[in-house]
Structures are given as structure tokens and as C-alpha cells.
Design a protein around this nucleic acid. Structure first.
Length: 864
RNA sequence: GGGCGUAUAGCUCAGCUGGCUAGAGCGCUGCCUUCACACGGCAGAGGUCACAGGUUCGAGUCCUGUUACGCCCACCA
């Protein structure tokens, strides 16, 4: 490993009144001008540390949660840089997908309508319409142009903020997830998945959001508690006998009923297995079947299977090979025309009463129909139950049969599942228990990853389909583009061997209308950032990457999908380490989120307390732990940063050590031994990705360093004669200690440490080598940590006496008598003069206590 | 239902492989205009370490169980 050059001191230039005001602006500019954080890119993989920075969603705004977690990563980056690694720390912007579409719609008051022709002179309306129904429909191309424009503005705002926070990102390494390169990478990876059989299309029931009118993936679901009601609906056995009563929360789906299901061991329903019943109102004959997933104690123990009410319906439909009777359309409404399986006029006229309605309206009508027919027993029983939603949606999901593209993720293959779990074991997780969430998710997968989306702004699925003589597409043998032509938009590009006039005509071709899920692109960030297939040199020295930092709530999406893609593409994990950060909670310990309206905008605390202060707060949150937003901590951080300025100023103004001076005094060597332990501990903590521990230890040391060591040594260091051995030893020690402490703090408090460094050292502290415990140990020689300890204890007792007597700390002390063990007294003797000077003690005496019991410091302030 | 985490001063949290007479900061109280720092300093009060067992010379720390809170996943007729 190449080690950065040893720090070089230069003539001191210490300001009279050091202050934090303005440090950010000054150093942001200098760091940029001097390329302090530039990735050199000329060193072998083993000397590089590469970071898969999370690309923030470049729409809307950053909140303090971003500052929190990005600061964690930055401390690690800075530590690795000081350890001599060439740090590859890019920044990406996720401007792909629905959040951007939403933002553009609301910002400009427009909606995308693919049937509208492109308007090259289109200008967005000067002020956005307030209501959605007044939004202006514009073409897909105009819409995408607006998306690009707005995200660029947003990205600049984000960059400025992240620079203010002091992220040591190499800003020349930026990428976006809708850039041409990202689209090329995304399409290339997808086509390779396709070629290897890892991607496939299938027409199947899938989760569908009726607002956005797109399919969604399992990973994007969330449950929400919603009111509902059990409707008790009677089905009449076809052969006669007692009615079978089903409890259902979705009576409107009776028209889609294809079977009833009960548990095979349920004695109540055994006589009916293999029989049929007739659905109320519509008079359709459906079988009663047995299935182990039916639970006897739920509802009435018998369930109505509809195509499709929920995911269990899909399981039963598939495993029992049931009919399909789907009536809900992509807009979430019941089809206007009566479905063909309704055989009677009565059934069709009943259906007509809720045709065209959404689920809620249809349910009301259907309840009336059931009551009129006598099939509804009793009043609906109101309940609250969890309902599946798309995480960005506001209406319950429906299940609709559509053709979609999937990437295998182990949801249908135990073998692949095991292989992916094994990849999880190859990663180092910080904190380690986070791995369970990954495994939990992989084990719970119930289908492959649905990657196609019926949206506009995203990476197009790069495929075309041949049309037969009747204009029907052949989905089994898609036409793929040549890799050299990527990225392609099949809606405007023509596949190899075809002409534009063959588009959408019989015997011609049609372009795939869909885009890829945004995760299908962001799962490729390691490949994208490292220049996969675009920059082989860069790729070789950065991939697989060292670190993926991210929040723990997206283990199932971003982390997992990235592991899937790299498993297929490179047969390796994408990184060596995954560091999971917690969430920011508001002071009431609720998760900060936009929907709750409790988000704190980051610029305010940054301006009020300063970047170092905010970073201090962030870095005191332990890895993986949810942390409350706490301005008190920021104030403490600010105080620490100011203390660093002032203590450094004080120490440096004592004057430089004579050339060649080394620590010779026992007290000086004692502090270096303690410092040496601190360096060991901070290094171990950072190696274990625990910046919080490193900070905590360094901070604790620093305060006692200021309170005790600086106080003890200042009289001696002030010495009129700089060549005096005692003064030289003190000054040499102060230089070493200050240099070491500044470097230990540098990853957390980059501004204050850089400011002080610039007063007396060449170059940037952020390029200085991480402190070396071995060097300190050599300087400390036979130092005894007990010297500082006992001296500080005596000093503390003196201060207490003065405090109790309500006198100034400068007050003279007549005498101090110390009773302690032989060892500690011997240590005290070696620092006697320093203790007397610091405490202004006229007479210092000591005597040994038996076996060191009852140590005591008796302080007499004035002669009586 | 499965998994994970947390529980230590009024608050936020340290306490890593068992040695602690249990710590820090904030807040609170008192004092000190101190020549590095009043955006400061010094000191003080404040805790049956959630509960019950167990291992051990010794348990905040390890084991078992219980409780509470939080998160993830599954189920949701």
C-alpha cells in the first residue's frame, strides 16, 4: 500500500480570533481547486477503495436523513483515503422513474399522453394548474424532455447541499440513471439476462396499480389498514341441500367466482368436495374444492375464489387449475359489457347495475343485489384489515392478467434462492444482524422479479415483436437490437431488417411499449459507476466494489436486486461490504417522512450550526441505529469544533519545538502512551465501520487532553527559554498530539481540522496519513500512563476545593497532601512541578497509604 | 405466525472478549469576568443497569425464560 507523505510543518500563521464562520465556503473552493478528493485511477485494485454511493432520487428534496447517512459514508471514505487508498467515491442521481414523472406533472401541470403528437416548440405553462383534471396532456417526447430539464436543476441543488455537508465525493464522477450511458448499461444487462435465460416474459396475473396503470413488483408492496366488511353470502349446492355460507370482504367479485375452497380435513365441507354450487345473483355453477391453504377457522372456513381478489386466489387458481373470469379492467373498473359467461338476461341486467363502476361502488350495488336475492345473511360485519397497496399508490392493488417481463430472482427456484443467500454470506454486513433481513426476504419470495412497467419516463424495454398476418405479436421470439446500437427506443427505432412503414402492420413489427422498473437500472449502479463494458481499465480497478452504504429499509429492493444482477453478470457479489444506516426520527421518535409532514429541511441546521456540527450529530448515530433529530447534539458538535480551533491556537502559540526535540518528560510521555491507545482504538473502530465509536473515543480523549494535560503542561511549555529541556519536551509533545488528534477528527469534522491544519502544516489534512500507533509508541518510550492519571486526579481535587470555596481557579493553594499507593506517588513525583504550577500549589507533599487503600487528597487553600 | 433489534440517570446514549466504587453529553443546581476558549471553564445533585432464574470467586456484560417497545417478513375468506 502506498502511504501518503509524512506531514510537513511550515511557519505558523495562527489567527487571533479563530472562528467557524465562513470555513465551509473557503474550503469547498480550495478542495475543488486542489482536487483533494480526486480519484487518481492509476493504482491497482488492492490500493483502491470504491464506494457504491446511493443515487438519491433527484426529485423533491433532500431531508436530514440524507445528511445523516451520507455523512456516515463520507467518514469511511475519508478514513480510507488517509489510510492511503485511492478512494473511488462517485455520486449518482436517480432521476429515472415514477417520482420524476410525478414531480414533473405537478411542477408544470402536465400529464403524459402518448397519443398526443410531439410539439417541438412546446413551452411549459407559466404556472401549473392546481387541479389534476386541468393538467395539460403532452406527448411522451415533450414529457421526457421536461423530466430531463427539471432533474438537472434538482441535481445542481443537491450537489451544492452535499458539498456544503463536506462530502468528499469526486464530483467529476457523476452519473444519472436516465443518462444515455445508464440506459445503454441497463438495456445491455437486460439483453444479456435475456440471452442467458434469466429474463423472460409471461402473460400472468400480476399486481396492478389502477391509478398509475402499471404492474408493480412484490418488493414495492406495502400493507395498509383499511376498513372493510365481511359479507355473509350463501351459495346453493347444485344438487340441493343446505346453503354454503361464505364470508367475503369483496362481494363485488362474486361475478368472478370460479370455485369455493375449504381445507381437506374440514368435516363440515367434505360432503361438498367434488360437488358444485351455484353463485347467487349470477347463477354460475362453480366447483367446491379442497386445498391445504384454506383455514377452517377463518370466516366460515370456506373461501370464495375469484379471478382475482388477492394473491391467494392466484395460488389456488394456478394449483387447482381453475377457470378464469376476470372483469376488472386496467383502470380498476368493472367492464362495461357483461362478461360472456353470464348466460341469462337476469344475470346480465344485474351486472349492468354495477358495470363501469370501481370496486367501492360495485360493492355497494352488489350488496343490494345479494340482499334482494336473499343470499346475503345478516348485516355486513365491519372490520379493519390490511390491504395491499403499491407503496406510491393511493388505491388498493388489483390483480390483472397482463404480459410482463420478469428477471429470475429465486422466487421460483430453490436452487437460485440458495445461491443468492450464499452471496449474502459473502458480504460483510455492518451491523452484522442486517443480513437476516436479506435472507428473510429471499426466503419469502413468491415469484420472480417483475421488471416491466407501463410508464413513460424510464429505460425502454429494448425489444420488438414480429406481427403475424393478423397483426398478432409473437412474444416468444422477440427481436433484439445489436448491442452496438444501444440505447434504443423501440417506439421510435426500427429493428434490424425492418422499415418504419412496417411498424404495427400485419407481417411487420411492433415495439415493446413498456419501460423497465427503476430498480432494474439502479440494481446496476456498481456496473454503471465502474464503467462496465465502457471503461475496462476503470472497471478492473474498482469492481467488485468495496462498499455499498444504504438505508436498511431498501435491503429487499436495492440491495437484493443488485446482488441478483451481479450474481448473473459477474458471478460475484457486487461489493465486499454493506453498511446499513438507520432512519432519522423526529424528536418524538417518529420516522421522518414526507407523508407525515415532519421532515426537517437540511439547509437550516447546516446554516445555523455549521457543517461540522451537523456531521458530529450524524456521526454519533451508531451504524444501523435509528437516531432522533437532535439539535442539542449539533450544538455539542459545534462546541467541539470551536474547542479544536481554540485549543490548537493555544498550543501552537506556545511556540514551536526546537529542531530535533523529543518528548522526554514523564508527563509528556504519559500522554503519548494514552494517545497511542486511542489511535489503536479509533483505527480498530474505523476498520469495523464504526465511525461513531471512533468519534466518541477521540472526543473523550480530547476533552481530558484540554482539561488536564494542557493545564498541567502550559506553564512549562510557556518557558522563557525554548531550549529548556522541559519546554522543548512539552512543545514537541503538543505538536505530535495536536497533529494526531486533528487527523483522528478529520473524517468527522473536515472543516475545523482542515482550518487548523492550514495554520501550520503543508497540504490537506485529508490527504495526510492516518496516525500510526507504532510511531507514537516509539516517541513515548517507557512512558507510564499512570503519571497523567494521578496528576489529573490531584488537579481535579484542587479544582473541587476551589469550587467548593467559591474562589477563582487562579487562587493560590497553601498546601496539598496526597495519600495514595507507592506506585501512584512515584508517578506523581515525576510530574510534581507541573502539578504545582497548574494548581498554584505552594507546598505539595505525599505519603503512602497501606496497600493504596483510602487514597485521599487534602487541600488547604490558605495558611491559617 | 416467523425473524431481527432495543430496554443503563429527567432526556439522548456509551459501557467491545465478565473485574465497575456503573460513565458521557444535554438538562438541572452552584461557582468562576481565568491572560486559548462566556459559542467558555470548574464543580455538584441524580441510577434497585426492564423482570425472574441460572453459570461464576465475581454479571450491566454470558445462558434460559418473561414483559414492554420498535422494525422486517408472511398471512389477510
Amino acid at each position: 500500500m502506498t502511504v501518503a507523505p509524512t506531514p510537513m510543518s511550515r511557519p505558523r500563521s495562527v489567527p487571533d480570533k479563530p472562528a467557524l464562520e465562513g470555513v465551509e465556503a473557503r474550503w469547498i473552493e480550495r478542495w475543488e481547486a486542489e482536487g483533494t478528493y480526486r480519484f487518481a485511477g492509476d493504482r491497482p485494485r488492492s490500493e483502491v477503495y470504491s464506494i457504491d454511493t446511493p443515487p438519491p432520487t433527484a426529485s423533491g428534496s433532500l431531508h436530514v436523513g440524507h445528511i445523516f447517512s451520507y455523512t456516515h459514508t463520507d467518514t469511511l471514505a475519508r478514513y480510507q483515503r488517509m489510510r492511503g487508498r485511492d478512494v473511488f467515491y462517485p455520486m449518482g442521481w436517480d432521476d429515472n422513474g415514477l417520482p420524476t414523472e410525478r414531480r414533473v406533472e405537478n411542477y408544470y401541470g402536465v400529464t403524459c399522453d402518448p397519443s398526443v403528437p410531439y410539439d417541438p416548440d412546446f413551452e411549459p405553462p407559466p404556472s401549473a394548474a392546481a387541479k389534476r383534471q386541468d393538467f395539460v396532456p403532452i406527448s411522451r417526447r415533450n414529457f421526457v424532455e421536461l423530466c430531463h430539464g427539471l432533474t438537472q436543476d434538482d441535481e445542481q441543488v443537491f450537489e451544492d447541499l452535499f458539498r456544503l455537508v463536506g462530502l468528499s465525493v469526486d464530483w467529476s464522477l457523476q452519473y444519472t440513471t436516465v443518462s444515455e450511458r445508464a440506459q445503454r448499461t441497463s438495456q445491455r444487462a437486460f439483453l444479456r439476462n435475456l440471452a442467458r435465460g434469466e429474463a423472460y416474459s409471461s402473460e400472468a396475473p400480476s399486481l396492478w396499480d389502477t391509478t398509475y396503470q402499471t404492474a408493480v413488483a412484490q418488493a414495492e408492496l406495502e400493507d395498509r389498514e383499511r376498513p372493510g366488511a365481511y359479507h355473509h353470502v350463501a351459495f346453493h349446492p347444485t344438487k340441493g341441500g343446505d346453503d354454503v355460507v361464505v364470508a367475503t370482504t369483496r362481494p363485488e367479485l362474486v361475478v368472478s367466482c370460479v370455485a369455493l375452497v375449504a381445507h381437506p380435513d374440514d368435516e363440515r365441507y367434505q360432503p361438498l368436495f367434488g360437488q358444485t354450487v351455484t353463485t347467487p345473483v349470477f347463477g354460475i355453477e362453480v366447483p367446491v374444492r379442497a386445498h391445504r391453504l384454506a383455514e377452517p377457522d377463518k370466516g366460515t372456513g370456506v373461501a370464495m375464489i375469484c379471478t382475482f381478489g388477492d394473491t391467494t386466489d392466484v395460488t389456488w387458481w394456478r394449483e387447482l387449475d381453475l377457470d378464469t373470469r376476470a372483469v376488472i379492467g386496467k383502470d380498476g373498473r368493472f367492464a362495461f359489457d357483461p362478461p360472456p359467461w353470464l348466460a341469462t338476461d337476469e344475470a346480465r341486467s344485474a351486472y349492468a347495475r354495477f358495470a363501469g363502476k370501481g370496486a367501492g361502488g360495485a360493492q355497494q350495488v352488489m350488496a343490494e343485489l345479494l340482499r334482494e336475492s336473499g343470499a346475503l345473511s345478516g348485516e355486513p360485519e365491519k372490520i379493519t384489515h390490511p390491504v395491499k397497496f403499491y407503496e406510491r399508490g393511493d388505491k388498493p392493488l388489483e390483480i390483472i392478467t397482463t404480459r410482463q417481463w420478469y428477471i429470475r430472482n429465486g422466487g421460483r427456484s430453490a436452487e437460485l434462492r440458495d445461491a443468492l443467500v450464499a452471496r449474502g454470506h459473502e458480504l460483510e454486513w455492518h451491523p452484522p444482524y442486517m443480513r437476516h433481513r436479506f435472507e428473510n426476504w429471499v426466503d419469502g419470495l413468491n415469484g420472480d422479479w417483475l421488471v416491466s412497467r407501463q410508464r413513460f419516463f424510464g429505460v425502454p424495454v429494448p425489444l420488438w415483436y414480429r406481427l403475424d398476418a393478423d397483426g398478432r405479436p409473437d412474444h416468444d421470439d422477440p427481436i433484439v437490437p445489436n448491442e452496438s446500437t444501444l440505447p434504443v427506443d423501440p417506439q421510435s427505432h426500427v429493428p434490424p431488417g425492418f422499415d418504419e412503414d412496417q411498424r404495427d402492420g400485419p407481417g411487420g413489427f411492433t415495439g415493446d411499449p413498456d419501460v423497465l422498473d427503476t430498480w432494474a437500472t439502479s440494481s446496476l449502479t456498481p456496473l454503471l459507476a465502474c464503467g462496465w463494458e465502457e471503461d475496462p481499465g476503470l472497471f478492473a480497478r474498482t469492481y467488485p466494489m468495496d462498499l455499498r452504504p444504504q438505508a436498511h429499509d431498501i435491503i429487499r429492493t436495492w440491495l437484493f436486486s443488485t446482488v441478483v444482477r451481479s450474481h448473473f453478470e459477474s458471478g460475484s457479489p457486487p461489493w465486499a461490504n454493506a453498511a446499513l444506516s438507520g432512519w432519522i426520527l423526529d424528536p418524538d421518535r417518529k420516522k421522518m417522512s414526507k407523508s407525515k409532514g415532519n421532515v426537517v429541511v437540511p439547509l437550516e441546521p447546516l446554516q445555523q450550526h455549521g457543517a461540522d456540527a451537523v456531521r458530529y450529530w450524524a456521526a454519533s448515530g451508531r451504524p444501523g441505529t435509528d437516531t432522533a433529530f437532535d439539535e442539542g447534539q449539533m450544538k455539542v458538535g459545534r462546541r467541539l469544533a470551536i474547542k479544536i480551533l481554540n485549543a490548537s491556537r493555544f498550543a501552537l502559540n506556545l511556540g514551536p519545538a526546537p529542531a530535533g526535540a523529543t518528548p522526554t518528560e514523564a508527563l509528556d510521555r504519559s500522554v503519548l502512551v494514552a494517545l497511542d491507545d486511542l489511535v489503536d482504538e479509533a483505527t480498530r473502530a474505523f476498520d469495523g465501520y464504526d465511525y461513531a465509536r471512533a468519534l466518541q473515543r477521540t472526543e473523550a480523549f480530547f476533552w481530558s487532553f484540554c482539561d488536564d494535560y494542557l493545564e498541567l503542561v502550559k506553564t512549562r511549555a510557556y518557558g522563557e527559554d525554548p531550549d529548556d529541556a522541559g519546554a522543548a519536551s512539552a512543545r514537541a509533545t503538543l505538536e505530535v498530539a495536536l497533529s494526531t488528534l486533528l487527523r483522528l477528527f478529520a473524517p468527522i469534522l473536515p472543516y475545523a481540522t482542515e482550518e487548523v491544519w492550514s495554520w501550520w502544516q503543508e497540504g490537506s489534512v485529508h490527504r495526510a496519513p492516518w496516525p500510526d500507533a507504532g510511531e507514537l509508541r516509539a516517541l513515548a518510550g517507557s512512558g507510564d500512563p499512570g503519571v497523567l492519571a494521578v496528576a489529573a486526579d490531584v488537579l481535579s481535587a484542587v479544582r473541587k476545593a476551589k469550587s467548593d470555596a467559591r474562589v477563582s481557579m487562579r487562587a493560590e493553594v497553601a498546601s496539598v497532601e496526597v495519600r495514595d499507593s507507592e506506585d501512584r506517588l512515584a508517578a506523581l513525583a515525576t510530574a510534581e512541578q507541573d502539578v504545582r504550577d497548574a494548581g498554584r500549589i505552594a507546598q505539595l507533599t505525599w505519603s503512602a497509604s497501606a496497600n493504596g487503600t483510602d487514597p485521599d487528597v487534602a487541600v488547604t487553600l490558605t495558611d491559617t
